[in-house]
Design a protein around this nucleic acid. Sequence first.
DNA 1: GACGTGACCCTAGCATCGCTAGACAAGCGA
DNA 2: TCGCTTGTCTAGCGATGCTAGGGTCACGTC
Lengths: 192, 192
Amino acid sequence: MSVQERKQRERAERERLIVATARELAEQQGWDAVTTRRLAERIEYSQPVLYSHFRGKREIIGAVALEGAAEMAAALRAATSAADGPRTRVTALARTYLDFAERNPAVYDAMFQLDGGLAFAHEDTPEPLKDAFAALLECLGEVAGDGVHPGLFTEVFWAAVHGLVTLTRAGRLPPGDTGLRVELLVDRLAKI
Amino acid sequence: MSVQERKQRERAERERLIVATARELAEQQGWDAVTTRRLAERIEYSQPVLYSHFRGKREIIGAVALEGAAEMAAALRAATSAADGPRTRVTALARTYLDFAERNPAVYDAMFQLDGGLAFAHEDTPEPLKDAFAALLECLGEVAGDGVHPGLFTEVFWAAVHGLVTLTRAGRLPPGDTGLRVELLVDRLAKI
DNA sequence: GACGTGACCCTAGCATCGCTAGACAAGCGA
DNA sequence: TCGCTTGTCTAGCGATGCTAGGGTCACGTC
């Protein structure tokens, strides 16, 4: 039994190594540089090993996305619980979200830009993704305003922040005034 | 002289054919299906011909994006000029934007999702892109509210709508309540 | 009207991509 | 010690974006 257990442990460890290496490589050189050959070389195994852990490259991206979602949820909760007063909380939430996206661009891409083969907005959505949305909802639900469904409000707020992230990072918006934009967004959207 | 002119005309015509075919193929089967081989086959020329018109695939995507930007600007102006009253105008603007993205997903991707090698938010930004932003600004500037820079307000509003588009199309938001979301967005963001 | 020249286009190929088949070795249980 | 399962690697497939080189056709000139 213990032999099998050791093998399972080693397999799990290698799987973590694959995901971590993919993420590292993506953050360093972009997702285009994350080829199965390069990834295999970095983990010091041959290509087919990757396919014994994941169905394909998509699934590796998906694994990075899930890891990122868990981290983001934790970061958002940490930020909101450290702030008191709805307004401070919402501002902290938005800033933390943008900050996470800026510091982990490749992970953010894996979550929302690339196809990681993940299901969203269904009952079979992976837990970390639902939890990240829940983290948003916990904070934003209390400032939705009367007669506005908290979920709907959260979706709209999320979309707005997400739009800021993607347009800024793609060079579509000048990067300087992000702070002002967030301020305006919170001011107008949240009913405080 | 007339011979050269004819050749130039034919070249320009073929360039239009390339862009139109790329767009058509992308709308039919997605950008992944737009390979240089398939594209060459559809226009009934060999691959290298593409490279005598464009530096590479990126530039073809960029050309589709520019075409789309011009169309979008026209659509937005048509919608806003047909509506009277700031509120109706802004709502019409947002709806038209979302409608354009929904009807031309591949073109929208070329504009904002893919790398078309285009410069944004610089002085060397291509004219159609600046003009599309101007079309937004014309309508949104009048509802920015006191003390808020119209450009900044337009950026935020644009980001919000863009976020709705991308998250909805990527399956991150349930597609049913788009109308409600737009309503909420206009209600809260615009100072009417 | 024949000819040299230049523009134009196509065939063929390169390196790289994601992914897989099949051979081979290592380590387990009997 | 032997047979077998499990696991890994080498080699290769089709497809990608892109390019080099040769060949053909039509033009302008004498």
